[in-house]
Design a protein around this nucleic acid. Sequence first.
DNA 1: ACTATAATTCGATTATTCTAGAAATATGGT
DNA 2: ACCATATTTCTAGAATAATCGAATTATAGT
Lengths: 103, 103
Amino acid sequence: MKLDTAAAHLEALGNPTRLKIYRALVRAGAGGLPVGHLQAKLKSAPSTLSHHIKTLVSVGLIVQVREATTLVCHANFNVMQALVDFMVAECCADECKPAQVAA
Amino acid sequence: MKLDTAAAHLEALGNPTRLKIYRALVRAGAGGLPVGHLQAKLKSAPSTLSHHIKTLVSVGLIVQVREATTLVCHANFNVMQALVDFMVAECCADECKPAQVAA
DNA sequence: ACTATAATTCGATTATTCTAGAAATATGGT
DNA sequence: ACCATATTTCTAGAATAATCGAATTATAGT
């Protein structure tokens, strides 16, 4: 994963409202949750909620599937996994013993 | 970890410059890196870099230790681990079979 | 005390994000 | 065709964040 992509994902999750949305969907699992359900849980203005959902969709963290009049949101678990992998990747890769440190 | 705390951590990492700083420190491991070294790597204005470092310090993702005239930055691995744990915690906890779905 | 290096804080500007009301679109039922 | 429900898009204002030059603080050497 490119650094800028990871930053975009982290930024998307770095807002309390969006993180609540995302975690509700993670908890919901494969079944997902309709926008209206999130609306009831989070109690923000519909336009505000929609705006945040759009942000999460645009970076690929969640996807929306229409079912009749309701839009069901699902967490994209592959993206989350890739993000977590990125965060811990190459840990200490540049670490070296004091004797090896160049001046 | 509280949701607002996790959101603050994610927001701090959700900026390309700060993510570069953080990842350089993760790669550097226990030895850390002085601010001046990060400066040379990232080529942003000193005041801008300092501002971003301060953000990372304020949420606890990194710590700074003075060594004579230089300030050495270290990634706080415990915080990163707690953040990763938070992200994957309670995955699918609310998931249930279709038959169990209340109307 | 003076100088040099390292890094931060201050102050001001520009850019971006958040919020939400109002209007618009999408779907299905009557 | 019309209505109801679900959700989004538009628009605009307020709040927050990013950037960076200049001035300041911190530490050590001479």
